[in-house]
Lab assay of single mutants.
Amino acid sequence: RPRTRITDDQLKILRAYFDINNSPSEEQIQEMAEKSGLSQKVIKHWFRNTLFKERQ
């Protein structure tokens, strides 16, 4: 599977949600997927990776 490139606009959407809640529900993930055009799997990975980076 090729690597997914996240655009600046998509990143703004993900960051806005992350700043509010770094552990989103399935409904929130689905909402982000619809708004951003990214798959739910990509969003879950982004949140997991970003949370890991923030904790270091």
Score class of each variant (00 low, 15 high):
1 R>L: 08
1 R>P: 01
1 R>M: 01
1 R>D: 15
1 R>V: 05
2 P>G: 13
2 P>A: 07
2 P>I: 09
2 P>D: 13
2 P>W: 00
3 R>H: 13
3 R>G: 14
3 R>W: 01
4 T>P: 07
4 T>R: 02
5 R>N: 15
5 R>W: 05
5 R>M: 15
6 I>K: 02
7 T>W: 00
7 T>D: 15
7 T>P: 04
7 T>E: 14
8 D>P: 13
9 D>I: 11
9 D>F: 14
9 D>M: 09
9 D>Q: 09
10 Q>E: 02
10 Q>L: 01
10 Q>D: 07
11 L>A: 05
11 L>E: 14
11 L>G: 06
11 L>K: 15
11 L>W: 05
12 K>V: 10
12 K>I: 08
13 I>W: 07
13 I>G: 03
13 I>F: 07
13 I>C: 06
14 L>M: 07
14 L>Q: 00
14 L>A: 00
14 L>K: 00
14 L>T: 00
15 R>V: 06
15 R>F: 04
16 A>N: 15
16 A>S: 15
16 A>L: 10
16 A>M: 15
17 Y>F: 13
19 D>W: 02
19 D>A: 12
20 I>V: 12
20 I>Q: 14
20 I>H: 07
20 I>K: 15
20 I>G: 11
20 I>M: 12
21 N>D: 11
22 N>D: 06
23 S>V: 10
23 S>G: 05
23 S>M: 11
23 S>P: 12
24 P>A: 03
24 P>G: 00
25 S>T: 02
26 E>P: 11
26 E>A: 11
27 E>S: 08
27 E>M: 14
27 E>L: 05
27 E>N: 15
27 E>P: 04
27 E>A: 14
27 E>F: 15
28 Q>E: 06
28 Q>S: 08
28 Q>T: 11
29 I>G: 01
29 I>F: 11
30 Q>A: 11
30 Q>L: 13
30 Q>M: 14
31 E>G: 08
31 E>Y: 06
31 E>M: 10
32 M>I: 04
32 M>G: 01
32 M>A: 01
32 M>C: 06
33 A>H: 15
33 A>V: 06
33 A>S: 11
34 E>T: 13
34 E>L: 10
34 E>F: 02
34 E>M: 05
34 E>N: 07
35 K>A: 04
35 K>C: 02
36 S>H: 03
36 S>C: 12
36 S>I: 09
37 G>C: 07
37 G>R: 11
37 G>V: 02
38 L>S: 01
38 L>R: 01
39 S>R: 12
39 S>Q: 00
40 Q>H: 06
40 Q>A: 07
40 Q>S: 08
40 Q>C: 08
40 Q>R: 10
40 Q>M: 13
40 Q>Y: 06
41 K>G: 10
41 K>V: 07
42 V>M: 11
42 V>H: 09
42 V>S: 10
42 V>P: 02
43 I>F: 01
43 I>V: 09
43 I>K: 00
43 I>C: 03
43 I>R: 00
44 K>Y: 13
44 K>W: 03
44 K>D: 14
44 K>M: 08
44 K>A: 13
45 H>N: 10
45 H>D: 12
46 W>C: 02
46 W>E: 07
47 F>Y: 08
47 F>W: 05
47 F>V: 10
47 F>K: 01
48 R>N: 15
48 R>M: 08
48 R>P: 02
49 N>R: 12
49 N>D: 14
49 N>P: 02
50 T>L: 10
50 T>I: 07
50 T>A: 12
50 T>W: 08
50 T>R: 11
51 L>P: 07
51 L>I: 04
51 L>R: 08
51 L>G: 07
52 F>W: 06
52 F>H: 13
52 F>A: 11
53 K>C: 05
53 K>V: 06
54 E>T: 05
54 E>Y: 11
54 E>G: 06
55 R>I: 01
55 R>W: 05
55 R>Q: 11
56 Q>P: 08
56 Q>V: 01
